[in-house]
Structures are given as structure tokens and as C-alpha cells.
């Protein structure tokens, strides 16, 4: 009977494969916790337009990452015990996690495409919500104020976003008064505008001429890279391990 229960090579490969899965599952878990912690604080941007499924993908990946860790550990036990029942449980659980992890990967990347494949969506919601007196407006105003100061940028593609389109901001501030939000002005160490008139005129020494889209795109892209591509890599590795486990199950 002992000789029939698979060659030690198959068992060794399965154990090794599962060790790698459990370690990368733990890494995925940690990584997606980092994503949901939202270090770049771009969640309002996605939340307002309802495209926050990049974060939904991250939440799913937290679950699947930890499950990979637990189930792969269980799988090592199943392989070493030569137990058919345990191995079948392992396979079924792993299959469920696999499907969820696929969903996380695909969801996250699809919604990343909606957000940052071009600046249109972010521009539109910036114009619609910046300075709007609603809750969403306040949230997005805070977001943009912070990003424009921290990243020294103005608007999505540049200050002209505020000039070429009407906006909630334009309704409260006429173009003569200020063509773009005052936070687009370059400021000195005491946070006073260097020269307010120069900023209103759009002189490049007194106004941030860079758009914020690059920063936002970078933030969302790095989240998506973590969730989608890392998840994808884990799934690519898990596939042969599971196929091997299925083979082992049939010869057990």
C-alpha cells in the first residue's frame, strides 16, 4: 500500500508548491490591507463616482489571501497524511478561493480602467463636485484641496480644466474673481500666495501648471498592480499545484 500512495517526488512538489502558495497568500493579505488602508487617500475620488470596486477587489483579496494561507497549510497536512478526504476538502476549498481571487483581480483592473484610462471621469467629477454644497461635494473638495497643495498641481489635466468648462466652483466664484481655485496658487513657507494677481493671470511662476491626474493615476495604478497583477501571479502558480493535487488525489 505504501508504494501505491504516490511517489515521494509528487508529495515533495505538492508540499513545496503549497508552501509557496501560503507565503504568497500571506503577502497578498498584507498587500491588500495596505491598499484598503489607502495610503494615497484617493478613496473619495472613487467613492463619489461609484467606481470604488478597486477597493472591493482589495477587500476580496484580503479574504482570499488569508484563505490561501490557511488552506495551503491544510493542504500540506492533507498531502503528508495521505488522506483522501482531507485532500478532497483541500481541493474544493482551493477551487472556491481560486474563483474569488479571479473575481478580485478582474474587478479591480476593470474599474481601474474606468478611472484612469483617460482623465475624463476624474475631470467631470471634479467640475461637478468641487465646491458643491452637498456631502459628496464637501468630501471631494477636501480631497482636491489636499491633493493640489501636497502635489503642487492644479485641476486634473491643468488649470485650464477650470476655464474650459463650467463647474460648481464657477457658480460661486466668477472667472474675473478667480479663474481657478486659489489653492492652485504657488505659496510661500507661510502658506500665503506668492502673488495673487500673478496667480489669477496664470503666470507660471505663481500658479501650478501641472495637472493632478498623474498623481491620482499613479496611486490607483499602484493599488491595481498590487491587487490584480500580484493576484494573477499567485493564481498562475496555484493552477499547476492544484492540477498536481488533483492527480495525486486520483492515485491516492
Amino acid at each position: 500500500m505504501a508504494a501505491e500512495k504516490g511517489s515521494p517526488g509528487v508529495v515533495g512538489l505538492l508540499v513545496l508548491g503549497n508552501i509557496i502558495i501560503l507565503m504568497s497568500g500571506l503577502a497578498l493579505f498584507a498587500e491588500t490591507v495596505w491598499v484598503t488602508a489607502d495610503q494615497y487617500r484617493v478613496y473619495p475620488l472613487l467613492g463619489v463616482s461609484g467606481k470604488d470596486d478597486v477597493f472591493a477587489g482589495a477587500w476580496i483579496a484580503i479574504f482570499t489571501g488569508f484563505s490561501f494561507f490557511v488552506v495551503a497549510s491544510f493542504g500540506i497536512g492533507a498531502v503528508l497524511c495521505h488522506s483522501r478526504g482531507m485532500l478532497l476538502t483541500y481541493l474544493v476549498l482551493m477551487l472556491i478561493i481560486y474563483v474569488f481571487e479571479c473575481a478580485s483581480s478582474i474587478t479591480s483592473y476593470t474599474h481601474r480602467d474606468y478611472m484612469v484610462s483617460n482623465p475624463a471621469l476624474i475631470t467631470k467629477q471634479m467640475l461637478t463636485f468641487y465646491n458643491a454644497p452637498t456631502d459628496q461635494g464637501q468630501e471631494l473638495t477636501r480631497f482636491w484641496d489636499r491633493v493640489m497643495i501636497e502635489q503642487q498641481c492644479c485641476g486634473t489635466s491643468g488649470p485650464l480644466d477650470w476655464v474650459n468648462f463650467t463647474s460648481a466652483f464657477r457658480e460661486t466664484t466668477s472667472e474675473v474673481e478667480f479663474p481657478w481655485p486659489p489653492l492652485c496658487c504657488r505659496r510661500d513657507a507661510n502658506f500665503n500666495p506668492l502673488n495673487e494677481e500673478g496667480c489669477r493671470l496664470g503666470h507660471r511662476d505663481y500658479l501650478f501648471t501641472k495637472g493632478c491626474f498623474e498623481h491620482i493615476g499613479h496611486a490607483i495604478d499602484s493599488y491595481t498592480w498590487g491587487i490584480s497583477w500580484f493576484g494573477f501571479a499567485i493564481l498562475m502558480w496555484t493552477l499547476p499545484v492544484m492540477l498536481l493535487a488533483m492527480y495525486y488525489y486520483t492515485i491516492l
Partner: peptide, 26 residues
Amino acid sequence: ISPPSDIDLWPGRRSGAMIVITSILS
């Protein structure tokens, strides 16, 4: 000057990465 509702939100072509991930994982 045009209203923001005129901005076309169609994301255009799907990115290659999204197609790769979706098709391969399926």
C-alpha cells in the same frame, strides 16, 4: 465654455492588461 456633462466618459479601448487578466483567468 462647455458644461461638464459634455465630457465623454467612454473609457475607450480596454487596456491590454485588463484583457490579458480577464481572458487568462477565465
